[in-house]
Nucleic acid binder design. Structure first.
Lengths: 343, 343
DNA sequence: GGGTATTGAGTTACCCGTAACGTTACGCTA
DNA sequence: TAGCGTAACGTTACGGGTAACTCAATACCC
């Protein structure tokens, strides 16, 4: 409110320099700890920085140098699904610790939204992008190619990524779950999840699941894909829909633990006993599973770690370290006690 | 990978102009739909934009004009607490829809982290900032004052904000819950929450809660503040700690629904019946409450709406519309059935 | 004392758009 | 046909910082 020199009433480097009685360049060197100045000069400059309340303008810095900025665009489908918030937390913590910032993009599971967001965020010259999923619009791919910045595709394992990728093999994780449920003796199995315009990891999981169930002599009686977010309540009413539209279902596989919990609540509310009357399996090993009385049958996925790995790959690439183009994140079946254990 | 003219191998406006055989200015006007050019010129320019894959450089644009950028810094404590992810989703959806971007900051509930983040994000010349909470370090406040950009403080109702504020009266919400529990006949009440270095909304809630409980002749026997995140498992083991360190507790008030659910699971696991043996009250009316067999006694808070309101205030201010400096978000007690209803 | 490091500070040329003019050509009116 | 307005485009300065370079002063050595 006091100084009003440049038009944005922000204190610029040249003002600091003038006040300190040195040149702009000297002041710049001091601020970047570049050396080439005396202690006295440094003190003078730093004092003025303090009194004037100078804040550097990174925009100008990026603009001037051929360095890229320190922010990284991070796109995820939505924040209602705890799976993604954990990944995001992993990413942002790691990026933040090393002086980078996340610019958030919520794609709502559509390629158009993603493309729109990519166009916008690229115009800000980000250092790199982290995108969820392996499917992108052709326009998006074109832009990403031209941008010439690091891109990490996360969540789906992608052995031929645009640039880099960290994720897990969703097909296999679904396959493993199917095999396990078959080994428990289930044959008539249902699925409750959500669907979106875009092909995604959950559908890949379902593919793997069907493969092993059918290979094991079982049937995925009905696959219910709701147009909703993958959280508790859709799990609840999805289960209701599933059970009322198909009979003889012995076990239900859910898109994630939140939905599975919703389903579990529905079953118990209707007087069904889990796992005696019906088996319930989730996916993701979300925090809620840690307090459930019956250990939820699920698939453990280190979400936070996945996010951190993505950030690490990005940062390594930005500092020109060698980076593998693809990193596989392991998952682990949790037998739990919401399906009837078998021999 | 093909064009490599400017150092960042990005196509610049002047290249487009040169290719189209017009001046830089003309190309700029075409891209901004500013008028002052013939249809023929427009077509020539747009064609080159397409073939060269030109993406505007918003950095340069901000730099040139005295306009601010389109990104808005958004700081929240953490993503593990669903309360904040919902608020963030509300903010980002609204901002994104109107062409703005969120730059995320996770403060981990500390003022130092917040100050560090503010310093960094301000150097990117954001259009504005949205901060969670009303308490900030003096250094942060100083920077915010000097920055001269809109600031919205959310979550805590703050009638004398730095600039603008949207939030709810946490004291009153705690007070209401206390009064309700008293009216249900409870007298010996416990509290389980988390504590952080910073004074925060949850502690204000607790203050209000204690006030009405004590005013109503009850006692908050023990207040347990764990150093952990406010989610399921801390609710579980916090309840264990609480019950083993104090006797005669008839009812427990939790910092939020996730913790309350954890506590509920603990109680039921130990054979206690809710609400017959012990009452459970949460806060926030989180999605999980929608599928619980017993309706959780809680406080409904429109998190998404709160986030949207914050974004709206920011956007209104940015387009110079008149904005009230403070907006109160209402909450509503949900009696539920995890406390014993009274006369 | 003269030559050579070393250190400190100044100069200049960008970077890529936008704003503010300047110029030209043309059409319309009186 | 003079007079004026305006569409259509060109030109230039500018913004805040950085990189590369030059220059001046001091320190040190033989």
């Amino acid at each position: 409110m006091s100084e009003k020199t440049s038009k944005n009433n922000k204190v610029s480097l040249s003002e600091v320099a003038r006040a300190a009685g040195v040149s702009k360049m000297t002041a710049s060197r001091v601020l970047r700890n570049e050396g080439g100045y005396s202690e006295v000069t440094r003190a003078k400059v730093m004092e003025k920085v303090d009194t004037l309340g100078y804040l550097p303008n990174r925009l100008a810095a990026v603009f001037a140098g051929d360095k890229t900025s320190t922010f990284v665009g991070v796109s995820i489908p939505d924040l209602g699904n705890e799976v993604f918030t954990q990944v995001l937390e992993g990413i942002d913590r790691k990026l933040g610790a090393l002086g980078h910032q996340s610019v958030l993009g919520l794609t709502q599971h559509t390629e158009q939204e993603e493309e729109k967001w990519i166009r916008t965020v690229l115009s800000w010259q980000p250092a790199g992008l982290i995108l969820t999923g392996r499917y992108h619009s052709t326009g998006a791919i074109e832009m990403l190619r031209n941008a010439g910045i690091p891109v990490v595709e996360i969540w789906d394992l992608n052995t031929s990524p645009l640039d880099m990728s960290v994720g897990l093999n969703h097909f296999d994780s679904g396959f493993d779950m199917g095999r396990y449920l078959i080994s428990c003796g289930y044959r008539n199995i249902g699925y409750v999840g959500t669907s979106h315009d875009t092909a995604n990891a959950a559908s890949t999981r379902l593919d793997g699941f069907c493969k092993s169930v059918e290979g094991g002599g079982g049937t995925v009686v009905r696959q219910l894909c709701l147009h909703d977010t993958a959280t508790y309540y859709p799990g609840y009413y999805g289960t209701e829909q599933l059970l009322s539209s198909a009979s003889g279902i012995e076990c239900i596989f859910f898109q994630n633990d939140a939905m599975a919990f919703g389903g579990l609540q529905y079953c118990e509310a209707k007087g069904m006993s889990v796992p005696d009357d019906i088996g319930i399996a989730g996916w993701g090993d979300l925090p809620i599973a840690s307090v459930m009385r019956k250990r939820l049958t699920s698939m453990h996925v280190p979400h936070l770690k996945l996010g951190q790995a993505a950030a690490e790959m990005m940062l390594a690439r930005l500092s020109d370290e060698p980076v593998p183009s693809c990193r596989d994140i392991e998952f682990r079946l949790i037998p739990g006690s919401t399906v009837s254990a078998c021999s």
